[in-house]
């Protein structure tokens, strides 16, 4: 695993419906962190969601790293005690190696997993891989 690098994301807080129907930039990874919040791993225009009260802000507090699925699952087997999603693509978040980690399992054919870690925990995260 390479060290996670700073992600230039956009955080969008909007109504669940507006997030469900948003026209995200093509190819962008969209992490639905809550019913009314998404974290998009790409720059996003203000009018991407239909909610006029939406908050759309750059978010640089996270780092991310893509890992081959085999290596990722071996790590998660050891460091994660909750049930991982089986469908693809899929998003999941929770304690991994005792840290608040977000996971993006890419679509079938792209056998990789994106680990998203709050920047202050990157040092600990890297330590747990060794």
């Amino acid at each position: 695993m390479h060290a996670p690098e700073r992600l230039h994301c956009t955080r969008i807080v909007a109504t669940p419906t507006a997030l469900d129907t948003a026209a995200w930039p093509g190819g962008a990874v969209v992490l639905r962190v809550a019913a009314d919040e998404a974290l998009v791993a790409a720059p996003v225009e203000l009018d991407v969601v239909s909610d006029p009260h939406a908050i759309v802000e750059p978010e640089t507090a996270f780092c991310g790293v893509w890992v081959e699925v085999e290596e990722a699952l071996a790590f998660l087997e050891r460091e994660c005690d909750w049930e991982l999603p089986t469908e693809r693509p899929a998003f999941a978040q929770g304690a991994v190696a005792g840290l608040p980690v977000k996971l993006w399992f890419a679509a079938d054919g792209d056998d990789r997993v994106l680990f998203v870690v709050p920047a202050p925990f990157v040092v600990d995260f890297v330590e747990r891989w060794s």
């Binding site: 909750w82 049930e83 999941a92 978040q93 929770g94």
Partner: peptide, 10 residues
């Protein structure tokens, strides 16, 4: 309800 079943420490 959003994330699923997790340990109380989360």
């Amino acid at each position: 309800p959003h994330c699923g079943v997790r340990a109380v420490e989360e």
